[in-house]
Simulated scan of single mutants.
Amino acid sequence: MSTVAAASRILRCWAEIDLAALERNLKLIRASLPPHIRYVSVVKADAYGHGLHSAAAHLMHAGADLFAVANVTEAAALRELGPGWPILILSPLLPGEETSLMDSDAAATISTAEEVDRFEQAAKAAGRTITVHLKIDTGMGRVGVWHEEAPALYAKVTAAEHVRLAGVFTHFASPDDDVEFTAEQRRRFLRALQRCPGLDPSKLFVHADNSAGIETMPGSSPFNAVRIGLLQFGVLPHPNSMLGQVRTEPVFSFHTRVGLVKRLPGGTTVSYGRTHTLQRDATIAVLCAGYADGMPRAASNRAHVLIHGRRCPVLGRITMDQTIVDVSAVPGVACGDEAVLVGRQDEEEISLAEFSRAADTIPWETLTSVTKRVPRLYKTALGF
């Protein structure tokens, strides 16, 4: 019996993280990109719920060039792995976070003149330098300087003595479903770069494309880096991506156990709100996972799970700690049996995309909603 199998026997609910697959995915993605393109690995939100330290350590080993996180807390946690890899914080910094930024040796995203002044003052007082990436808003309407105003902010950044520009980037609003607007955002970004005198893309990280937007990346341009988040974890955000031919492997799977099996007569209503009525006598299994673990309530009466390699429908509302499924067609189900919520069991599979559709959400939210009470079991090339 493998170590993970032994460990999971005493767990009610757990996630398995295949770190060897994560490394293989990064290498496959890199091999599909032009040689000069650098790899920005996005590991915010605890590496999309996979575990920051474990995932980042293996991404470092596989050849990531830069890591992107959401805030200074994540940057500090990532820096615990050691010096050497650049870190970019994607969200705005709050006043007072400058010291943590410098202590983590991370780069800040800069969008306003006020931030330049604040960073310059903090870095000068500390006798240090703050590294930044200038973000240009080309239509996302969120973080970043509006593209028409980018040259003025670029001039202010480059004139600051204690602020060092290390990159320039933008963010696409609809790369997976609006090719025309993505192309317009790209044109706005390129025009903004051209209007910044002295900007040398060869000395900066210049990035716009993420896992969902790579299919529109031109072959010849100042872009020299891509931001890869979900794709490195084996989830293709957009089926028409140019990287769709890269056979990335799922890194994450989600498991629980049967806590109880019982027989109920036809006509019985199931769970809170009585949203499901049994049409005939049925055998039901009560699973040891609910919405407090990451089994979304919106998947009530819609999702399926795998037990003994067979699909079993969810019945009624998913509750905080338990989910009810119909196992009438699966003989021999017993207390303690494994149920797969996301992943493969025998010849059947429930993908992360299918699980997310059943909950009327997206894979990003699904992964980051698997809670801390769900242990992560890690698999490496040497086994679990």
Rank of each mutant, 00 (worst) to 15 (best):
G309V: 04
V305H: 05
T319I: 10
V330I: 15
S328K: 00
L315T: 09
R317M: 13
V333E: 11
G309L: 12
D326T: 04
M320Q: 14
S328W: 06
H308L: 02
T323A: 03
Q322Y: 06
A303D: 04
S328N: 04
D326N: 09
R311S: 15
M320L: 14
V333Q: 12
V314T: 09
R297C: 00
M295L: 11
Q322T: 14
V333T: 08
A303E: 02
V330W: 06
N301I: 06
M320Y: 13
V305A: 07
I318E: 04
V333I: 13
V333G: 09
I307D: 06
V314L: 11
I307S: 08
T323G: 02
V314Y: 05
I307T: 08
M320I: 10
R317E: 13
R297Q: 06
R302S: 12
A303P: 02
S328R: 04
M295H: 10
A299R: 03
M295Q: 05
A298Y: 00
A298G: 05
Q322I: 06
T323E: 03
H308C: 04
A299S: 15
S300T: 03
V327N: 09
N301W: 07
R310L: 14
I318W: 01
A303M: 00
T319V: 13
Q322W: 02
V325K: 03
G309A: 06
T323W: 00
L306A: 11
S328Y: 07
V325F: 07
V330Q: 14
V305E: 03
I318M: 03
A298H: 06
H304V: 03
H308D: 10
H304N: 12
L306Y: 12
R302N: 11
I324N: 03
P331A: 14
V325D: 04
V327T: 07
V325Y: 07
D326C: 02
S300Q: 00
A303H: 00
M295E: 02
R317D: 12
S328E: 09
A299L: 03
C312A: 15
L315C: 12
N301H: 07
V330S: 15
C312H: 00
A329V: 10
T319M: 15
I318F: 05
G316R: 00
R310I: 10
P296F: 06
